[in-house]
Design a protein around this nucleic acid. Structure first.
Length: 268
DNA sequence: ATGGCAGAAGCATTCTGA
């Protein structure tokens, strides 16, 4: 069986329902991680997901942040556990949700949807929070991997891993999203054998997942690749294809991010 | 030094994002 997994910073789920529906119909994902839902849990559009054939688990807050994981309502996918936030660490911001999904009664996989803080600039106090967040996240996934070596962490990491992921590396040199210190933190995931799935299959330049709303950035393809799907070893071995749904950025009233996706092909 | 989009909150304008 083949499953399609997609991650998208939607920049407000309530403002994006038309674009979300169009994308779901066109790309038919099985498992979806969204970030920046920007809605409190009481107002989360559960019915929208139900009407489109999905079950959903969410973790939001007022105005900012917010994440969710949606999965096709099917006998093939069962949600066994949900964890909101990074356990023990009392973060006030809603940026992480984990679902342990059992697929086809055979594959138990931890899925994480994460919205890493932007950090603003290297001098800003928010940058310290970004680094702390990344350290806590690393510790958390390390613990999860000890319990279950099947893990898929997807989301807006707000880090462009290499200069190949930046439209103008000199302009962005040691700037927020591209600094060495952030890239070092990103490599900590790779040390845990979590792989940037996109680069398994696509080594080309000019592959981006975010473009600024201003200055006609999308038209000029002046973007950054900051949204990622990280796969642990057992999932890397079944990853058959990857991509970025750039067309979604062309929608009317688009998010400034495009969805990123992977296909996993299991024998059973 | 830079904030020209866009969304939320809430009703004019500020905060935040990347």
């Amino acid at each position: 069986m083949s499953i399609n997994i997609a991650s998208w910073n939607i920049n407000s789920i309530r403002a994006r329902e038309t674009s979300l529906q169009k994308w779901i119909v066109e790309s038919n994902p099985d498992i979806i991680g969204l970030q920046e839902t920007k809605v409190i849990d009481d107002q989360f559009p559960v019915e929208f997901f139900y009407d489109n054939g999905f079950d959903v688990r969410f973790f939001g807050q007022k105005s900012y942040n917010g994440v969710c994981l949606a999965f096709k309502r099917s006998s093939l996918i069962k949600c066994e556990q949900v964890v909101r936030n990074i356990p023990i660490w009392e973060d006030e911001q809603a940026r992480v949700i984990t679902c342990c999904l059992m697929i086809n009664d055979h594959h138990r996989i931890n899925f994480i949807s994460v919205y890493v803080p932007n950090g603003s600039s290297l001098e800003d106090p928010k940058f310290k929070y970004k680094l702390l967040f990344l350290q806590k996240l690393t510790g958390y996934v390390k613990k999860l991997l000890r319990e279950n070596d099947s893990l898929c962490m997807m989301g807006d990491f707000n880090i462009a891993p290499t200069d190949l992921d930046v439209f103008d590396p000199d302009l962005w040199r040691e700037k927020i999203l591209c600094s060495s210190i952030e890239r070092q933190q990103f490599s900590k995931f790779e040390e845990l054998f979590l792989t940037d799935s996109f680069r398994l299959k696509n080594k080309k330049p000019n592959q981006y997942s975010w473009w600024d709303y201003r200055q006609g950035s999308f038209r000029k393809n002046e973007g950054l690749r900051i949204d990622h799907i990280l796969l642990s070893k057992p999932l890397v071995s079944v990853c058959s294809d990857v991509g970025i749904s750039t067309d979604v950025r062309k929608h009317e009233k688009p998010s400034d991010h495009a969805p990123v996706w992977v296909n996993l092909d299991f024998n059973i």
